[in-house]
Design a binder for these strands. Structure first.
Lengths: 192, 192
DNA sequence: ACGCCTCCATACGGTGCCGTATGGTCAGGA
DNA sequence: TCCTGACCATACGGCACCGTATGGAGGCGT
């Protein structure tokens, strides 16, 4: 996979591990498996890193940095809360394919001992979305709830799609549109 | 755990496996682990069942039957689509604790070879919710999308809660209320 | 050219799992 | 009573993983 010179740096181990994380999940970053990806053996790994836990933590640190950055990027492009929120939804939907590992993350978090990082990232995402909703006129608590629900939708959709054979259509563009509309529509004029 | 007479039936194996599934997840139903729960050994298991796959399939069949039944039960109690939908949301929220295994299910489905069952149950749930939304005046496709989003919220919230250390509040009652409102509020009068 | 120090391959012991093989136990029928 | 067959415990080989130990291989300074 990345077999250049025989020598491998500590960072290359994190690179390869991160690739596994994004593609499959945190539980797939195993020492011997990553070694195979790199075309080397774990003898190298245990020279550069302490143990598997250290590698997992390094992967999560990178994830925290990258995902935080992406959230900011998706926002700063547009002007006005509504446009920013819409852009964010679009970006998240578009990058769904590259967040394969994230679907498993919340379930592995505790067992892998990375619940704190996951919580920080989640907190940041919720706060950001909730902030935009507040700008749109929602109360602080209602905004937080709606933000939480929005994150849940992203996670949930990803899993429904993964664990489901055909027969169920997933038009991400339309789903995103619907979700966005539901998020910004105040609770007036209910039917029934 | 369930150590009565030494003799164990094929069904008791499924019972114990199902208990593991609901509490932890499908990946936790392992032959030797279930044997320990039952106070016996896998020698018994391989007499009653062919292999681990058979046990997993049996667990999923029971899950399909039970969960389908619960959906019907939550609906038939009330009268009118709005009340039925609200009752359904409430039941789902209340039983969240007993669906611990389900959060992992969609991710394990393919690897465990049970994607077909998962798809059938999902299809049934989506159709049911979508049907109620149609009765409330939504178009068929909009209803399907909203139903899909509602299922996604359930899955996603469960994971956000599991993979997250304190600091993030989960008032299920209020979240359910908000989700219900968002689900039944037509896309009029948007802010911004 | 020689040695040293970094880096890695390999072998090893330990764990948890799957599935098979084999022999033992106990109940009930002949 | 004895035998047979349903039922189970145990031991085994196989696999994937973790982490350690140990002995090279090769670049680098002197």
């Amino acid at each position: 996979m990345a077999q250049g010179g025989r020598r491998i740096t500590a960072e290359q181990w994190v690179d390869a591990a991160y690739a596994r994380f994004t593609k499959i999940g945190l539980d797939s970053v195993r020492v011997e498996a990553v070694a195979r990806d790199l075309g080397t053996t774990k003898g190298s790994f245990y020279w550069h890193h302490a143990d598997r836990g250290a590698l997992v933590r390094a992967v999560m640190e990178r994830w925290e940095a990258e995902e935080t950055e992406h959230i900011i990027a998706a926002a700063s492009a547009e002007a006005g809360p509504r446009a920013r929120l819409r852009a964010l939804f679009g970006t998240v939907a578009a990058r769904a394919g590259r967040r394969g590992g994230e679907s498993r993350l919340y379930l592995d978090a505790e067992h892998e001992g990375v619940a704190d990082v996951v919580t920080r990232v989640t907190r940041r995402r919720v706060d950001f979305v909730a902030g935009l909703l507040v700008e749109l006129g929602f109360g602080a608590e209602e905004a937080e709830r709606r933000a939480l629900l929005a994150l849940a939708v992203v996670l949930g959709l990803q899993q429904l799609e993964r664990g489901t054979r055909p027969h169920i259509s997933f038009d991400h563009a339309l789903l995103t549109e619907t979700a966005f509309t539901m998020a910004v529509t105040p609770p007036h004029a209910q039917v029934g």
